[in-house]
Write a protein that binds this DNA or RNA. Structure first.
Lengths: 203, 203
DNA sequence: CGCCAATCTTGACGGCGTCAAAATAGCATC
DNA sequence: GATGCTATTTTGACGCCGTCAAGATTGGCG
């Protein structure tokens, strides 16, 4: 049940590991994030981290989990109560894109195949990630937004499709495949139109 | 195919490597695709592949390149000449999803951060991938489809946004994050509606 | 035939994740 | 204050990995 031991051998290695891992991830990507290097950065021997995380995968899950918490916080900050809902949506989309472009490697980790493909995710991560999406669906269903959805539209489907659009945009953008960094704003606005059109006339 | 066992010179190691690498990728993912294992499968020593590919990255690029060729071929097979363009679009979307779900690891490799993040791509791969997207834009601009786009819509933006929707759908679906395999058809149709709505009324 | 360049092999280096066993340090109890 | 318990940390080892260097083998061309 130990929560935060203050002064053992190192101090609070658990937190230190997470912090260093986050910067290592941001600067070098998953490829550059090795447990050995991480341990060295924390000033500790190579196998010390294993007493705080079951294995490398668990540490990556913890990292991704933190990301989802920040993303959920971002979603909660969006104000959909105003009149101009296109503007609200545009703000949200831009916020989402900024979140992704601010730390591409973290975004990749959160949504990438590395963790998700074979059910390699922590139970905890799965809950947080799904909670995040549930929050998104909830927000789509708030009184102000609900009026936008036709009666026969399934909110879940609309949420999935719109998130997919956002997500795809981020991936293409971050990896620089079919969308340039300069086009970001223009494409972002196009996506808003796409989603809005899908919201208003999804039949 | 001639089988020439245990000769010093393999014969067509280049092709064999690509073939074995493809199956290894499909079955085990990038993680399981090591040059050493690959060499063993091909019946040669660990460093033999280096005489056919500069390094592992180059081999992965070649693999992705083959994928883009198949994707382009798939796009060319879609028939947009008929009357029912919603149906045509739905067929294309389903074809795209099938392409991705048929070999998730290949799709991941083609569009994933592994190859694209730091410009680690071969010049050749870049050309093929961009050619593939150009082909997509072209098809959107064919006479039958062109009529769908409002005069003020920029085809490039529409192409980027619609591809992003498709792409995001695939990623979420393949990694099983926010979209289940069962929901595939329903979400796919929702995406078609989204894209169509975006095509018809993008302002 | 002899030679060259392409092809393939063996050996080695450093890095990785992780297991096992030994060492260390804080804590509670006597 | 000594003792024992347990959490923490270290050292050592194993088997993978990508890749470089140097040597062995061979097909093909003159």
């Amino acid at each position: 049940m130990a929560n935060k031991p203050s002064r053992y051998h190192h101090g609070d290695l658990h937190a230190t590991l997470l912090r260093e891992a986050a910067t290592l991830l941001r600067e070098q990507g998953v490829e550059g994030l090795s447990l050995r290097r991480l341990a060295e950065r924390a000033g500790v021997s190579r196998t010390a981290p294993y007493h705080h995380f079951q294995d490398k995968n668990a540490l990556l899950c913890a990292l991704a989990e933190a990301g989802f918490h920040r993303l959920e916080a971002l979603m909660d900050r969006v104000d959909f109560s105003g009149e101009d809902r296109e503007r609200s949506l545009r703000d949200f989309v831009r916020g989402y894109l900024r979140f992704a472009t601010d730390d591409p490697e973290q975004y990749e980790l959160m949504f990438g195949r590395t963790l998700w493909k074979a059910g390699h995710t922590t139970e905890s991560l799965r809950q947080v990630a799904h909670g995040c999406f549930r929050r998104y669906v909830e927000r789509l269903n708030e009184p102000g937004q609900r009026a936008l959805l036709p009666a026969d539209a399934e909110p879940l489907r609309v949420a999935q499709a719109s998130w997919a659009t956002l997500h795809g945009l981020c991936r293409l953008l971050l990896d620089g495949i079919y969308v340039d960094r300069q086009d970001m704003e223009a494409v972002s606005d196009q996506a808003v139109r796409l989603i809005l059109a899908g919201l208003v006339a999804p039949r």
